[in-house]
């Protein structure tokens, strides 16, 4: 139980072990731990940043989607308006065309009638002259009485 030389031996062993630990064991282990701690801290910060970025991106996306929807609605509205306009224009054009065709028809009919009237007048004058010639039973020179005939035709 007495203290003896073992004390010296153990002291030397102790010094050697502490020296070895200080030189070759503690620094690499502690360094690895601290480096990993830094790495983890960085990773956590990065993930937090990414989360924030994602949130921002989502917000932006929602906004853009809303904008796009509004634009689409506007375009549809415009298209509808344009369509109505085109339909109106075409209807108008159709109306005009119809009017034109109708009035042309009227004009043609009028012209035809006038021509027919003219023809009739001509024929009536011939008939009248022939009738008159028959009635008078004498030969009348049509040329000599043409002025009277013309007057008659004008009166028809």
């Amino acid at each position: 139980m007495n203290l003896n030389a073992t004390l010296l031996g153990e002291s030397i062993a102790f010094i050697v072990f502490v020296w070895f630990t200080m030189k070759y064991v503690w620094p690499p282990l502690n360094g690895a731990i601290e480096e990993r701690q830094n790495k983890i801290a960085d990773g956590l910060a990065a993930s937090e940043r990414a989360e924030k970025d994602l949130e921002l991106a989502q917000e932006k996306a929602t906004e853009q989607l809303k904008e796009a929807k509004a634009q689409a609605a506007e375009i549809i509205e415009q298209a509808k308006k344009r369509a109505t306009q085109i339909v109106d224009e075409e209807t108008q054009k159709g109306h005009d065309e119809r009017e034109k065709i109708i009035s042309q028809g009227y004009a043609e009919v009028d012209a035809e009638r006038n021509r027919a009237k003219e023809d009739l007048r001509q024929q009536v004058s011939v008939l009248a002259v022939a009738g008159a010639a028959k009635i008078l039973e004498r030969h009348i020179d049509a040329a000599a009485h043409s002025d009277i005939l013309d007057k008659l035709v004008a009166e028809l």
Partner: peptide, 27 residues
């Protein structure tokens, strides 16, 4: 005084070596 406790020395140094060598291998 010059008595050496061989068992104490041997076991303690053996265990000390177990400590530093295992920790060193990890380090």
């Amino acid at each position: 005084f010059w008595t050496w406790h061989v068992d104490t020395l041997a076991w303690s140094i053996l265990l000390g070596l177990v400590f530093i060598l295992s920790f060193r291998s990890v380090a």
